[in-house]
Amino acid sequence: MLKNAERIRSGWPRGDVDNLAKSTLDAMTQAGVWVDDEQVVGVRCTKKYCEINETRVIYGAMKRCT
């Protein structure tokens, strides 16, 4: 396992998890996915530090309620 200082120096992922979620929601609003991100009723976010040479995978899912 990497020490926290080594993980932080790696530069990824940076920022508070709530700010990472906010930037994603803002980008989706700009892309026209919805009119305003106030329409989002739930978000689940986690942040994980990768080990050296570990593959980074980012994924998400959305469900439209009608």
Rank of each mutant, 00 (worst) to 15 (best):
A5I: 07
M62Y: 05
L20V: 11
E38Q: 12
W12C: 11
M28P: 00
G60C: 13
W12G: 02
M62R: 10
Q30V: 03
C50A: 10
A5V: 07
Q39I: 09
A5C: 09
L20H: 03
Y49W: 13
T55I: 15
W34L: 06
R7K: 12
V35F: 08
D16A: 15
R64S: 01
E38L: 03
V35D: 12
W34N: 01
R7W: 06
D36H: 13
R64K: 02
G11N: 12
A21V: 11
C50M: 07
N53H: 02
L20W: 05
V17H: 07
D18H: 13
K3Q: 06
D26A: 08
R64T: 09
T66V: 10
L20N: 14
W34M: 01
G60R: 02
T66Y: 09
L2C: 05
K47L: 03
D16L: 10
A61H: 09
V41K: 02
K22E: 04
V17E: 07
P13R: 08
A31H: 07
Q30H: 06
G60I: 00
V57F: 11
R56I: 15
P13D: 06
R56T: 14
E54P: 02
D26I: 13
L2H: 08
R14N: 14
N4E: 10
V40M: 04
A61Y: 07
